[in-house]
Design a protein around this nucleic acid. Structure first.
Lengths: 108, 108
DNA sequence: CCGTATCCTGCATGATACTG
DNA sequence: CAGTATCATGCAGGATACGG
């Protein structure tokens, strides 16, 4: 007896995906990294509302979920660049669809 | 001088969309309603982890965002059915993509 | 420049009990 | 059956200060 296509008994795939990109800032971070590789300070400037503390935490979590790559350059002053992993890239379509939906239905 | 396609200065459309579907349960609720119209108690059974209190609140918020329609039947015992509005339907593609992404990348 | 270390706060979510 | 009413709690996110 097969389950419904919509069954969510143990680990709904929609819920699980939202746990990864559903934070207050993660979608926005990924959205920016879709366009380009960015340094920590650049991301911060793009998101005036986020604190340094929170940005660091969110980036660590995205890194932990293997969506974002953190590359450290041994320079002075230090430079750290964030980019999407292949797994992160695979979210491109979803993120862009959310952007489009927001534009159309929320007038943004 | 045009802005970048990715600019998020005031009201990022990705962030705004996530505010609507990004809660812990909203995606799952919408996911179920994608398939069918359901009664309150049916939804509750489908999501064993959610409490009555929280389900009510989430449904009210979805209703407030005009994604879900709440239809009350004047019967005894009372019957209330939830379905997607047209606006809710417009999220179908996004939700299904999140489901697929979860299945492929999270092994669900 | 890119962080950690503390401490703190609000709000999303939950537990439990009661009701039209 | 489908809710409200209360009260409780955990954790995401923030403020501020300091460090390699």
């Amino acid at each position: 007896m097969r389950h419904s296509t919509y069954e969510c008994n143990k680990g709904c795939p929609v819920e699980a995906t939202l746990e990864i990109i559903g934070g207050k800032w993660k979608g926005v971070i990924l959205y920016h990294l879709l366009e380009n590789t960015y340094r920590f300070g650049e991301l911060r400037k793009m998101m005036p509302g986020i604190t340094q503390h929170t940005l660091t935490k969110q980036l660590r979590e995205l890194e932990g979920d293997n969506l974002v790559l953190r590359k450290i350059y041994a320079e002075v002053p230090p430079r750290v660049e964030y980019s999407l992993t292949e797994r992160g890239e695979s979210l491109r379509e979803i993120i862009l669809m959310m952007r489009d939906w927001g534009r159309v239905h929320l007038g943004l």
